[in-house]
Structure formats: C-alpha cells, structure tokens
Design a protein around this nucleic acid. Structure first.
Lengths: 190, 190
DNA sequence: GTCTATAGAAGGATAGAC
DNA sequence: GTCTATCCTTCTATAGAC
C-alpha cells in the first residue's frame, strides 16, 4: 500500500485525466483516495499544487526516458527511432499522465508553469540535438530541424489524446510504427 | 455587426479557447458578448449547447475544407500535400476553434458527442482514402494506411495546441512545411 | 429580447474535535 | 493525520419586470 500522499496523487491523476482539472472536484479526489474531503489538505495545500506535483513528476520522468534513450543509441538514426518510438509508447502506456501533462498545463499558476516550461525545453532539446547530429553525419536529411522536431513531438504527444487501452493498437505496435515513421520523415527521399 | 447569437458564439469560442469549457463561466461569455448573464439563455439553452454548436460548425468547416482540397488535387501526392498542409494551416489560423474542437470534445453530452463523432469519421476517411489512392497508383508507399493517416492528423491537429500568433511560424510557412513533411512520410525511402 | 434579482446547488478550503 | 461540520464564494439557470 503506497503512502497517503502517493495515493492522493494517483487518485487525482485518474480524476484529472478523466474530467480535466477544472471539472474535477476535490471531493472526487478524496473519495477515490479513500479519504474525507478535508483529508486531502493535510498533504497538499490546494488542488492546483496537486496538479503541479503530478505535472512536474510526469515531465521529469518523460525527460529522463528520452535522455536515456538518446544516450544508449549507437547512431543518430537509431537514437531518432528510439526517441520517437519510446516517447510515443510512453504516451500510450501512460496516456492518463500524458493527457494531464500536455493538456492541463494552462491551469498551472504562473510560478509553477514556469518551472514546468523549463522541463519542456529540456525535452524538446534532446530531439532537436539528435536531428542535428544526424544532419552533421549525413545520415539524416532535414530542412528545418526545429519544425521537424516539433512535428515529431506532435505525433507522439497526440497519442495520449486518441489512445484507448485494449484497442487495435498496442503500446508496442505504436512504438514500432512511430519509430519507423520518424526515420522515414527525417531520412528524406534518400 | 453580426447578430446576437453569432456574437455569443464568438464570445464563447474566445472564452473556451482561453480557459477551457469547464473553467469558463456564463458570466464571462455574456460579458464578452456585451450582454447580461441572463441574455445568453434567450439564444442558447445551456453552456453545453453553446459548446456543441461551436464544435459542430467547426468540424463541418474543417471537413468541407479537406474534401474540397482532395477533390481539386490532380494526383494523390498533390492531394496529400494539400490536405495535410491545409489542415495544419487551418489549425494555426483558427487555433482557438481548433483547441475547442479537439480538446473540449469530452465535455459534450452523449448525444451531441455522437453527432460530432460522425463528422470526425468523415474527416479521417478523406485522408485515408487519399493514401490508399496513392498506394494503388504506386505514387505513395505506406505500410499501415490507418496509422499513417492518424500520425499525419496528429501533426496537424497538434498545431492548435502549440501555435502562437505573431510567432516565428506563420500559417503559410506551416502549410508549406507540413505539406512537405507529409509527402516525405508517405513517399517512403523512394 | 434584454434587463435586474435571485433561486438553488456545488465547490474549495478551513475549524476544531478526536 | 483523519474525521465531521460548515463557511463562504461562485456558478448555472430561471423568474418576472419592461
């Protein structure tokens, strides 16, 4: 049994993913965590702080995943495949967390938003660096690195919006297909 | 000066795009439209009906745009470029409407959601048909038509999430770049 | 068709007992 | 650290005058 604070975060993540942040009530969160409405406030100062904690941890985990994938890959092409494939798979496996991270962002307070933006820039940079590496070695052919990186991130992020567990597409098949698509996109007409 | 119902819809679209549906108050909508809080209900039965009307019209316009682009194109490759480029540009030019259409969907009532889903299937089919056409003629090389269509739609739809007017990227440059990326993605290694 | 006023419900957060 | 009870605010939607 995880500790109470963790249970509350898991309950809140479920609720936020299902209804969105503003439409989620603290009563719903408390009830999912097996607490009274007041019980939440012993562990978190407000509903917004709860969103922030979930967002911060989610972003940090996604970033660590990407950095590790980039470092382990033997070539820019392999790194590109691992990055986009892995990020896409992550957004399928953790589609609830992904939705919160990507789509509830605007409901963070100014200060909290700024901190999360920093993590986002780290994430964007990892992919752009891989593309630049590949262009330098000649493996990849990309006209506009920034925009191509953005488009690839869009493909992966959007998985969280449409993914339904138990559907035709599995996280593994998404990883494979999206990794392939990324390489096709960045290798050009050959 | 547009009629009052239209003014209310425009005001609501602004507010929904800025705060999301649940966090938007009917008072805010009324105030933006230059009405008292009660004035809205003469024209729309509820806040949810307002969201539905905006969503329905937005989807229908996007669909008409795509169908027209597909019909006018002289070849599957040209159609693919026009479709993805045009859809991406639309999500930049109408990023507010795009956000509502794509990200406030879950707040529609069951009946209204079903009607919008029908429009979405039309939209998805247009792109999948173009890819299939191109595979048949041999112009395009796509392994999984459904998933490739989905990934291309993701690229375009996600523009509404990140686009900021007045930024480095214009709707025109997005149209060009994303149209090119789509062709690269579907033409394969050549 | 627009207003003022308000009903009626629900939500975020706190007080204070245990 | 958890509960019950509740404060206070805010919200959607309606009533009824004009």
């Amino acid at each position: 049994m995880p500790d109470t604070a963790t249970r509350i975060m898991l309950a809140a993540a479920d609720a936020f993913a299902e209804h969105g942040f503003p439409a989620t009530t603290t009563r719903d969160i408390a009830s999912r965590a097996g607490l009274s409405p007041a019980g939440v406030y012993v562990h978190f100062a407000s509903k917004e702080v709860l969103l922030f904690e979930i967002s911060r941890r989610g972003h940090a985990r996604a970033r660590d995943l990407l950095v590790a994938a980039a470092e382990e890959a033997p070539s820019p092409t392999a790194a590109l495949r691992a990055l986009v494939g892995g990020f896409s798979r992550w957004h399928a496996e953790h589609f609830q967390l992904g939705r919160i991270v990507q789509f509830e962002f605007r409901h963070l307070s100014g200060e909290h938003r700024a901190e999360v933006i920093g993590l986002r820039k780290d994430i964007d940079r990892v992919l752009a660096d891989v593309l630049r590496d590949g262009v330098r070695t000649g493996e990849l052919d990309v006209e506009d690195v920034q925009t191509t990186a953005l488009a690839l991130m869009s493909m992966a992020i959007d998985v969280a919006r449409w993914y339904v567990p138990g559907g035709r597409r599995t996280p593994e098949s998404i990883e494979r297909t999206y990794g392939d698509l990324a390489v096709r996109l960045a290798r050009g007409a050959g």
